[in-house]
Amino acid sequence: MFEARLVQSAILKKVLDAIKDLLTEATFECSDSGIQVQAMDNAHVSLVSLNLRSDGFDKYRCDRNLSMGMSIASMTKILRCAGAEDTVTLRAVDNPENIMFIFESPNKEKLAEYEMKLINMDQEHLGIIKTKETSYSCVVKMPSQEFSRICRDLSQFGESITFACSKEGIKFSASGDFGQATVKLAQTADADKEEEAVLVTMQEPVKLTFSCRYLNCFVKAGPLCAQVQLSMSNDVPLVCEYKIGDIGHIRYYLAPKIDD
């Protein structure tokens, strides 16, 4: 028996918004410690790593480990049926062919149950992110809205954005046929609010170029968290991380552009 309850179904809606442009289907690995998804996009350029800890749920029970293949589009359709204030419960038996989504209104007067067929997926298990945390040359924390804005604005100029980070701050730039654009963000000396701060932790400067198309998918996670963390080292994939309240995180890995 697997059962996981979240008082705020809105969190799950936002999680789906954050992955639906990158993944058409994904395996949800459920265990005693929580729910995990690790999946690459079709082009193997980016990877989504979603982690929802069991202790972050209002109720969580997982008697045996389950791997459930789910269509992200179908899941999105079902979550659209949940009211903004509804509680959501995910439920499945031990060898499931289906998963149930149960939505309950705050006053408990409305109970809606949706059943979704699971899909058989080739078990492409990615043992990538289980190694100990890599130390990165630069780690930048900045407002997620600002990051979304910069990615959107600079995407108008070209297909890629260059991130250059030094101890002073981070510079984003793009160029294309009709011109070029640069946005510099200085490290904030004393931001009034923690969520408005720009913080740079630097071992050595980095300069990396990434595809706009993927960055603009990652920023869909913005509504999950006021701050985004960008971890960078030269010639290795970017890690773009959004915390999901007290329950977990979503990390996107994106391979940099490489010189031919």
Partner: peptide, 14 residues
């Protein structure tokens, strides 16, 4: 010119 890298180049996919 530069081309988009693939994660396979950086990580060993099990």
């Amino acid at each position: 010119t530069s081309t988009q890298g693939r994660l396979d180049t950086f990580f060993k996919v099990l």
